[in-house]
C-alpha cells in the first residue's frame, strides 16, 4: 500500500491506545483504549468529570497526555500536531464565538486561520450556513443570536475547513428541549450529507441513544462499556421493574435478589430498580414477597431498559445533570449487585 493510500484509508479514523492523564493525584483518564472508524457518529457518555473533555482535549492536541498514544487520521497527536489540527473541527463545550463579529466574519476568520483561499472561503461559508439553516442571518452580529443559533453557527464553523473528524463537546448543554431536538436534527443531517466522523460527548442519555451508532460509557476516567445503544441495553438482559417501597426494605431486597429471574437489584432514593427476565410474570412474585415480609409497595412500573439503567448497573450511580450527584451518592441507602 502506498503512503497516499494509507493516508486515505486512515482518514477519519481514531485510535486511542492506553491513554492516561494525571493531574497530581487525580486520574482524569486511566488506560483508555478505543478505535473509531471513518464515518461513525460515536458517543462518549458519562457524568461530569468522567474524563470525556480531557479525552477530547488530548485528541485535539490541546493537552499532552501523561502516557499512552493517540492517532487521529493516522497522525500522532503528540508528534504531528499541525496535521491533526488541520484534520479536525471542534465545537467546544463553552461558547467560543466572537460576538462582535457577524456569523460570516466568524466563519471567515476561522477559514483564514486554516489557510482557505478567498473563493473556497465564500463557497464553504455558504454551504455550512445552509447546512445549519443560518444563511439568512449571516450578516447579523453574533450577539443578536439565540443560544441555539450560536451552537449551530459553531457547528458550521467546525465544518468550514472540511475536517475528516468533528468533535462536539456537549453540543446541547444548557439548551432548552426544543432547541436540543433541533440541534439533533442538524447533527443527523450532517452525518448523512457530509460523511465526517463525528465524536460527541454528552451526559444526556437520550442524546447518546438517539444520535450515536456506538457509545463508550465513561466513568471516573475509564471506559466501562462500549457498543451500540441496542447492544448496551440488551446486555442488561430483561425488563426493568421500578418498585417504590414505603418502609425498610433491606430484607426484601435480599430475598428478591435471591430469585432466579432477577439479574440485578439497585436500591436508590426509596426505590428498587430490578432487572428481570419476563418482567410481567415477576410482578406477582414481588407482591407475594412483599406481603410475606410486611413491606408496603406504593407503585410498580415496568419498562424496557434505557441507557440510564446500563449506567446505573455499571457504576451504581445515576448520571445527573446537577451538582447534587455526589450528595445523592452519599444518601444512597445501599446497593446489592448480583453477578452471573
Amino acid at each position: 500500500m502506498s503512503s497516499a493510500q494509507a493516508e486515505q484509508s486512515l482518514s477519519g479514523s481514531i485510535v486511542v491506545d492506553g491513554l492516561s492523564m494525571k493531574y497530581g493525584a487525580l486520574k482524569a483518564l486511566e488506560n483508555v483504549s478505543l478505535k473509531i472508524d471513518k464515518g461513525e457518529l460515536f458517543g462518549l457518555l458519562g457524568p461530569n468529570g468522567a474524563g470525556k473533555t480531557t479525552l477530547i482535549s488530548i485528541l485535539s492536541t490541546m493537552l499532552p497526555a501523561s502516557s499512552g498514544q493517540a492517532f487521529v487520521c493516522g497522525y500522532d497527536v503528540r508528534k504531528e500536531e499541525a496535521k491533526v489540527r488541520q484534520s479536525i473541527g471542534i465545537v467546544f463545550q463553552d461558547p467560543s464565538l466572537d460576538e462582535e463579529l457577524t456569523a460570516q466574519e466568524n466563519l471567515d476568520f476561522h477559514a483564514r486561520l486554516y489557510g482557505l483561499d478567498s473563493r473556497t472561503r465564500r463557497v464553504r461559508a455558504r454551504e455550512v450556513l445552509r447546512l445549519v439553516g443560518l444563511e439568512d442571518r449571516r450578516k447579523d452580529l453574533v450577539k443578536t443570536y439565540s443560544g441555539g443559533m450560536r451552537r449551530r453557527l459553531e457547528i458550521a464553523r467546525g465544518l468550514m475547513h472540511t475536517p475528516a473528524v468533528l468533535f462536539l463537546d456537549e453540543p446541547t448543554l444548557g439548551l432548552d428541549p426544543q432547541t436540543r431536538r433541533n440541534i439533533w436534527d442538524h447533527i443527523r443531517a450532517l452525518k448523512k450529507s457530509v460523511g465526517t466522523t463525528i465524536i460527541l460527548t454528552t451526559h444526556y442519555m437520550d442524546e447518546a441513544d438517539h444520535l450515536c451508532s456506538r457509545i463508550a460509557i465513561m466513568d471516573r476516567g475509564k471506559i466501562v462499556a462500549l457498543g451500540s445503544p441496542q447492544e448496551l441495553k440488551g446486555s442488561l438482559g430483561g425488563d426493568v421493574l421500578e418498585i417504590e417501597v414505603v418502609n425498610a426494605h433491606e430484607e426484601f431486597t435480599k430475598s428478591l435478589n435471591q430469585r432466579q429471574e432477577v439479574r440485578d437489584v439497585v436500591a436508590q432514593d426509596g426505590r428498587l430498580i430490578l432487572t428481570v427476565e419476563r418482567g410481567e410474570s415477576f410482578i406477582p412474585v414481588v407482591f407475594e414477597t412483599a406481603a410475606a415480609q410486611g413491606v408496603g409497595i406504593s407503585s410498580v412500573s415496568m419498562r424496557t431498559p434505557k441507557l440510564e439503567d446500563v449506567f446505573l448497573k455499571l457504576t451504581g450511580r445515576e448520571i445527573r445533570d446537577d451538582t447534587h450527584t455526589e450528595a445523592k451518592d452519599r444518601m444512597r441507602l445501599f446497593m446489592t449487585r448480583k453477578r452471573r
Binding site: R85, Q86, F92, P95, L97, R157
Partner: peptide, 13 residues
C-alpha cells in the same frame, strides 16, 4: 472569558 481564545489556539497556526 468568552471562549474565543480556544478557537484561536486550536487552529493549526
Amino acid at each position: 472569558q468568552f471562549g474565543f481564545l480556544k478557537e484561536i489556539l486550536v487552529a493549526p497556526v
